[in-house]
Amino acid sequence: MKIASQHAWKDKDYTPRHDWPGDTLVQWGGSGVVLGKNPYTTAFFEAFPDKDVTAAGGFIRGEGKTIAEAEDDAFARFKKETSCNHLWGREHYTNSGQLCRHCRAFRCNEVKPIVKLGSWRKPVEWYETCLMEIDNKYSRVLRLRAKFFGVTQRPDAPSPSA
């Protein structure tokens, strides 16, 4: 176990109670802020195990009234993750993050991020082709989008040679 360097001066009176394996980096705090719809302050304990220790590697965070309770919470999560037969899925992540569907472990950098290309690269829908003839502020962008995807005229429009 490696203890984060800031604990030479911050929360230095605490010593981890559990035997974290290998080169697991650990850090803690007596009053961390959790942001969200209802922000709150809590004691926390964070561990960053190597991939050779858990299939996920990554990050484990425990919370509690005291740092000791937070470490107990984090170690329980660690034990749960190391005994899980992981089934990974993106869920709501569009970056390279994934969650295990069984134990809720998190891992990152295993899949490529989903790239949002911008609205002008969105393929033209069939109902938009009839709007290409109308002259308004959206028609130029629509015609550019259509040209980008190889649509040069409406499917039901008469051909220029007719």
Rank of each mutant, 00 (worst) to 15 (best):
C103Y: 13
A70H: 09
D50C: 06
H92K: 07
K2W: 05
P16G: 00
K51L: 12
H7L: 02
T41E: 13
F59T: 12
P39F: 14
D19N: 10
A76V: 05
R104G: 00
R90T: 02
P158V: 06
T41R: 15
V34G: 03
I134R: 13
K2C: 00
K116A: 12
S161A: 10
K122M: 04
F78W: 03
F78D: 04
M132L: 15
R90V: 09
I114K: 09
T42E: 10
K10W: 15
K51C: 04
P123H: 04
I60M: 06
K112T: 09
D156N: 09
P21T: 07
D52Y: 14
W126I: 09
K51N: 14
G22W: 12
E46I: 06
P49W: 09
L144T: 08
V124G: 00
E91N: 05
W120H: 05
C100S: 03
G64F: 15
I134C: 01
G64S: 13
V111C: 13
V124A: 01
K2E: 06
G30V: 01
V151Y: 12
A55G: 15
F44W: 08
W28N: 03
W126F: 12
G36F: 15
A157R: 03
R61S: 12
M132E: 06
A43I: 10
N109L: 12
R77W: 14
A8W: 00
Y40M: 04
S5Q: 00
K116V: 01
G29I: 02
A105E: 03
E110Q: 08
Q27S: 15
Y127A: 01
A70E: 03
P21L: 07
F59Y: 15
A105I: 09
C130M: 12
H7Y: 10
N136I: 04
N38A: 13
W88C: 08
G22V: 05
K37M: 07
L131K: 05
A157K: 06
K2T: 01
N38P: 01
